[in-house]
C-alpha cells in the first residue's frame, strides 16, 4: 500500500459533481495512464518543486499548477495547498501561454475561494 506524503483532494461542486473526475473522464487512455503515473508519484513526494510543480501562478491568487506532458500536450492540474493537503480544482492543457479551456484560471480562482469558505465539499483523489 502506498504512503501518500502529499494527499490530493478534489473539488466537488454544490451539485455534487467531482470536477477532477469529470476532467479525468475526458482524457484518452494514454493521457489517463500518464496522469495516473504522474499523480501517484507526486502523492508519494514530500517537496513539490519545478519542473513538476509551479508554486505561484501569475495573478493566480495563491494557485499553483502540476505540470506534465502526455500525447504531445502540456497537461495542467490547478490547485493549492491548505492544511497539509493539495486541493485540485481544475484540470486543463496549456499551449503557448494559453489554457484550454481558456477560462481555467478564472474558474480555478472561484473554486479555490469556495473551498476556503467551506461552501463546497472535497473528496480524496481516487481516480
Amino acid at each position: 500500500m502506498s504512503v501518500w506524503r502529499t494527499p490530493i483532494r478534489c473539488y466537488v461542486s454544490q451539485a455534487g459533481n467531482n470536477r477532477i473526475a469529470d476532467w479525468y473522464k475526458g482524457l484518452s487512455p494514454q493521457e489517463k495512464a500518464d496522469a495516473d503515473e504522474f499523480l501517484k508519484n507526486m502523492r508519494k513526494t514530500i517537496d513539490w518543486r519545478p519542473p513538476d510543480y509551479r508554486l505561484r501562478l501569475r495573478d493566480g491568487q495563491g494557485l499553483g499548477e502540476l505540470r506534465w506532458h502526455s500525447e504531445n500536450k502540456q497537461h495542467r492540474l490547478l490547485g493549492f495547498f491548505m492544511g497539509g493537503a493539495w486541493y485540485a480544482v481544475v484540470g486543463c492543457t496549456h499551449k503557448q501561454q494559453i489554457y484550454d479551456p481558456a477560462d481555467s484560471l478564472t474558474t480555478a480562482k472561484r473554486y479555490k475561494k469556495q473551498i476556503e469558505r467551506q461552501e463546497v465539499q472535497t473528496v480524496e483523489y481516487d481516480l
Partner: peptide, 30 residues
C-alpha cells in the same frame, strides 16, 4: 490503489497505455 489499477487494466487500451506510461512518466522519476 492496486485494485483500482487492476480494474483499469481490464481495458486493453489502458493496458497498452499503462506500459508506455511506465517508460514515459515512470523513468523520469527514476
Amino acid at each position: 490503489m492496486i485494485s483500482s489499477i487492476a480494474e483499469k487494466l481490464r481495458d486493453p487500451e489502458y493496458r497498452r497505455a499503462f506500459v508506455a506510461s511506465q517508460m514515459n512518466v515512470g523513468i523520469p522519476f527514476q
